[in-house]
Nucleic acid binder design. Structure first.
Lengths: 210, 210
DNA sequence: TTGGTAAATTAACGGTGTTAAGTATTTTTA
DNA sequence: TAAAAATACTTAACACCGTTAATTTACCAA
């Protein structure tokens, strides 16, 4: 039955077209300018056709949010080659900030917008596995650092939340225009790195010993 | 001219009615359920009348965002009585987290939503003075702590950004449902306090000396 | 060729922010 | 006090939005 296969492939192709169009719209014009009608226009179908491939708009954003995590993962592909876990931690934080600031619309849908979480709440498997995996990786890394005596021992969960909280806080405040006056635009990213380095420096044992 | 005064007062009364209605709506039903028509319904005027008192919806949210800062300031009224600046810093952070978690819709419009900043961008005085004042207070406090040798010396701006970033990151991740699985709901606030205490503990000199 | 199925569309519903034009109402002036 | 001017408010409409029901078109199997 090659016919069924081809049909299935066509279906996947159109799904991809829809996601590509959505991505184009929200990268170029921003989240709030992504509308079902504009998506339909871009792929040259009627608006209702989109609903044959996705349950609703939230589901589309859920898929975009997944693509965002994929992109983020690619950005972290330079991590495994860093042997020193503490250096890996520094780099991980810097990657996070850079990813957020260079892909603001992706960051928005991954960590700020309600839409993908609303879609998630209506799925059978309601876990935010992508996010939980990411924070899990941070916890494992922190654990390794502590075991090797590179950073001060402390409850891993609390430290992980603190670090994630800080980098997310910096990026999301910047994205939502709350840092416009505090730091000049061109120094924003470098100041964030300074803050991150300060935080990691305070828990860095080699730093404190000196 | 008592008439002009009375008219002016009436005008202010209606403005207040509009803001009260908006506040009621967004506290009880959430930000996205605040619509011009619902506001008009609540105050029993036609939708267009609202535009005679506010330029647009963003301007209404700007005023709500101001009221949020006022509420936050009230919550910090217990700070001046704390003589030890380091203890004041702890309390300030805890207040921030508590305010955000107890007034999620206010927090949303103050630090996450675009609306008030969009309104600000179209005003003659484009400074986000409320936000900048708040972060300024944090910087002054940190400066005092450093001068008295209570915490390790470091660039004030970077440390302030790190602390603000962290508490904002924690609260905003929670508000936007990114911590549902990571921490059980009932332990969320206490875990945030743990993270904050961990961060401040690492820079607390009295803590490190022991 | 016909019948059935899958895919896509048209039309519509109820909502949104916002504006232009028109109607009351109130105040000022002659 | 009556007419004119200014103020306050409403009605109607525009151009959107997400979403659904009903309908048409395109395709494949017998």
């Amino acid at each position: 039955m090659g016919i069924a296969e081809r049909k299935e492939k066509q279906k996947q192709d159109i799904k991809k077209m829809i996601l590509d169009a959505s991505m184009k719209l929200f990268i170029e014009e921003g989240f709030e300018h992504v509308t079902m009608r504009k998506i339909a226009d871009l792929i040259e179908y009627s608006p209702t056709t989109v609903y044959l491939y996705f349950k609703d708009k939230n589901e589309i954003f859920f898929h975009l949010h997944e693509l965002g995590f994929q992109k983020m993962l690619e950005m972290n592909s330079n991590l495994p080659e860093i042997k020193n876990p503490l250096m890996r931690l520094y780099k991980m934080g810097e990657n996070y900030i850079n990813f957020g600031m260079q892909n603001q619309e992706f960051y928005d849908v991954m960590f700020i917008q309600h839409a993908p979480m609303d879609a998630l709440a209506q799925m059978e498997n309601c876990d935010w596995s992508l996010g939980d995996t990411a924070i899990g990786a941070l916890q494992v890394l922190l654990q390794e650092c502590m075991e090797k005596g590179l950073i001060q021992k402390a409850p891993v969960e609390a430290v992980a939340m603190a670090i994630w909280g800080m980098v997310h806080g910096l990026v999301s405040l910047a994205i939502r225009d709350r840092m416009n006056k505090l730091v000049p635009k061109e120094k924003l990213v470098s100041t964030m790195h300074t803050s991150l380095n300060w935080l990691l420096g305070t828990i860095d044992n080699s730093f404190n010993k000196e």
